[in-house]
């Protein structure tokens, strides 16, 4: 953590505090990665369920909130892979597409988050952590277990890819 920033969530001495302070943020993060509110909520709840069982250990961590992000990201991306597989299967069987519940968003936003989900995994992870979750690059790097410079590189590439993917009349650079 860079000097001078707020103290990390070390004050989360109880699971409850961690939950209260992080749940909504993690759901947003998971939503962008899964594309479904229900899926995001489920994955975050499952992550908290895992954390609850391991709380004896997790509470010793300096940043249990970052650990939660790691778990939520992994679960969300894993879930989306399964959803994509199910969608492909449904398509082959000419079945109904797998329903995805989304909040009411403007079309440009829907396209934006869809574009985020089309990015390479690492770029997605860094982007949602930095932009959506407002983590610093050092925190994102810690979550993703990579160097800070690597996180910055992924972020830069993600921006470029998004700018290229989105409507140039809406997004400049």
């Amino acid at each position: 953590m860079p000097p001078g920033e707020d103290a990390p969530l070390q004050s989360a001495e109880t699971f409850e505090l961690l939950y209260r302070s992080e749940y909504a943020r993690l759901v947003r993060l998971a939503f962008v990665l899964t594309g479904s509110v229900g899926a995001a909520e489920e994955e975050v709840q499952e992550a908290f369920a895992v954390a609850h069982r391991r709380w004896r250990t997790l509470q010793r961590y300096e940043r249990p909130d970052l650990w939660m992000r790691r778990v939520v990201i992994n679960r969300s991306l894993s879930r989306r892979r399964k959803q994509q597989s199910a969608a492909r299967l449904a398509s082959r069987l000419a079945a109904e597409p797998v329903p995805v519940d989304e909040p009411v968003l403007r079309e440009p936003d829907r396209a934006l988050w869809a574009a985020v989900r089309s990015l390479p995994r690492r770029q997605q992870e860094v982007l949602v952590l930095v932009v959506l979750d407002q983590r610093s690059f050092s925190e994102a790097a810690e979550v993703l277990d990579c160097a800070e410079t690597t996180a910055r590189t992924h972020y830069r590439r993600a921006r470029l890819a998004l700018a290229a993917a989105l409507d140039p009349t809406e997004v400049v650079r």
Binding site: P108, V131, L132
Partner: peptide
Amino acid sequence: MTIDAHLRDAADRLERALDPEAPPRPSPAP
């Protein structure tokens, strides 16, 4: 609008869509 601003705005709208009672996102040091 830069991509950063676009993302920030979209993140703000997403937050409100998921939690309508959420306070506005602070800026520029969120």
